[in-house]
């Protein structure tokens, strides 16, 4: 593993008839949370699905610290709605020799989840919390989360942010998550990677990321610049450039 990074993506390329993901490279250091940001359709999910093995890249390499113990959560995907949480967990844990029952119970308590409930009786937020509880209970070095906070309330988002930071606090784990909710980036991400139209626009630690775009937009270092504004300016600029004179 290069420089002990837990995940290294190099020159990832995937071509669809109407969309091209081109030459994506980044690395995920231990103990860090990377936020993958970009508008809908930018290519975030394709990157995450390639890392998860759901999509076969046309080019490039993906090196993961533990290929047999990757935790992936695809937000808003509801699995087995008729089943009880306890049934799903009992089956899922069989696949992970590193399953930690105490950890799982801790997350259930933290999220106030009753695992005798059926999936279909849970709200969207509770379904996501359950999936997170399972994903974080087998000590996967890398946690991949696709839009983990989409469609859930601010209190739940804050709770999720807390457990994500707790997960990487030991310096042995890392998280890569995609989002278009920029407040989540400010709250939990250490590093931000901006994906625009299938290309990696910029990747850097949070402070350096803001500093880079302040310079790009001709602002002073002391000027305020939120991630929302960065995103809006980038995407609007692209729109303006696309309009013919």
């Amino acid at each position: 593993m290069t420089n002990k990074n837990l995940l290294v993506v190099e020159h990832l390329t995937k071509n669809y008839p109407k969309f091209h993901l081109t030459d994506i490279s980044f690395a995920l250091a231990p103990g860090t949370i990377m936020g993958l940001i970009g508008v809908n359709g930018a290519g975030k999910s394709t990157i995450l699905k390639s890392i998860a093995g759901l999509v076969t890249p046309d080019e490039g390499t993906i090196v993961n610290a533990a290929t047999d113990n990757l935790a992936v959560m695809l937000g808003e995907t509801v699995y087995y709605p008729e089943k009880r949480l306890a049934t799903i967990t009992a089956i899922t844990r069989r696949f992970y020799p590193t399953w930690d029952a105490a950890q799982y119970r801790y997350y259930l308590d933290f999220f106030k989840l009753d695992d005798h409930q059926r999936v279909k009786t849970l709200s969207t937020g509770m379904q996501i919390k359950y999936q997170l509880a399972v994903a974080m209970s087998h000590h996967a070095p890398v946690l991949i989360l696709d839009e983990p906070t989409s469609g859930i309330d601010p209190v739940s988002r804050q709770a999720i942010g807390q457990v994500l930071q707790h997960y990487v606090a030991d310096g042995q784990h890392s998280i890569l998550f995609s989002t278009h909710i920029t407040t989540d980036l400010a709250a939990v991400a250490d590093t931000i990677t901006y994906i625009h139209d299938g290309k990696l626009l910029y990747t850097a630690p949070k402070a350096a990321f803001s500093a880079h775009f302040k310079q790009q937009f001709g602002l002073k270092a002391t000027d305020p610049l939120s991630f929302d504004e960065i995103m809006l300016k980038i995407e609007r600029q692209v729109l303006v450039d696309a309009i013919p004179d």
Binding site: A52, G53, L54, D68, N69, L70, V72, L74, T77, V78, Y79, Y80, P81, E82, T92, F95, Y96
Partner: peptide
């Protein structure tokens, strides 16, 4: 309907 194929593909063993 239950997203079983996606769920299973994300387990160790993949597709």
């Amino acid at each position: 309907q239950t997203q079983d194929i996606l769920y299973t593909a994300l387990l160790p063993g993949g597709k």
